[in-house]
């Protein structure tokens, strides 16, 4: 009895919201705000290292020694990989990946899963690349802490980008689960 009614008049739910539905709404909004904040935090962490490197000067007690290392284009690559992976993962329709809705085209599900795999592989590759960069470019050369900070900023950028993608994914799936429960 309730199945055709809730499908027929969805505005009733809008007019008389139950408490758990408003909680779901706020949880979704909070999750998306959190994801956006993490995204900005990630990029500003790395930009901080880049700006710091551009303004780096030689130590005050030894003015002849230039800074031994700078943030180069190599340092930008893991972040760009993570960013591409995040865009790909979030552009995919999640019902299409689940494949239970009876879209009829099994190749579409296969292709969606392939692109999802590519997106997650890009994000994991960015994280692994940033760790490799930290070890190979900064730790093995035994630079002072002031310069090793560039590598740590890169790793934390990629970790925060991955966290942002995960939070965005979870908050959007929570919303669709509420919708799903309602329509049944």
């Amino acid at each position: 009895m309730s199945l055709p009614r809730s499908n027929y008049d969805p505005r009733r739910v809008c007019l008389n919201p139950f408490p758990n539905f408003t909680l779901g709404k706020h949880r979704r909004a909070i999750g998306i705000y959190l994801a956006g904040g993490l995204f900005a935090l990630a990029n500003w962490t790395f930009l901080d290292a880049a700006i710091l490197s551009a303004h780096a000067h030689s130590p005050y007690d030894e003015p002849q020694i230039p800074p031994p290392v700078h943030v180069a284009f190599v340092d930008w690559v893991p972040g760009i990989c993570s960013l591409l992976g995040m865009i790909i993962v979030n552009l995919i329709d999640k019902d299409r990946v689940r494949g239970e809705e009876g879209f009829g085209d099994s190749r579409a599900v296969w292709r969606a899963r392939l692109f999802l795999f590519i997106g997650f592989a890009l994000m994991a590759g960015g994280l692994a690349g940033s760790v490799a960069l930290l070890v190979l470019k900064y730790i093995l050369h035994e630079y002072p802490d002031q310069y090793t900070y560039y590598g740590y900023a890169n790793v934390s950028q990629n970790v925060a980008l991955m966290l942002s993608a995960i939070v965005l994914w979870i908050s959007q799936s929570v919303g669709s689960e509420y919708e799903y429960n309602l329509s049944i």
Binding site: A29, A35, G36, G37, A40, W44
Partner: peptide, 14 residues
């Protein structure tokens, strides 16, 4: 919402 919170964090981070 995503862009708004990104800009807010940018305002604090800059």
């Amino acid at each position: 919402r995503f862009i708004t919170s990104t800009i807010v964090v940018t305002g604090f981070a800059l």
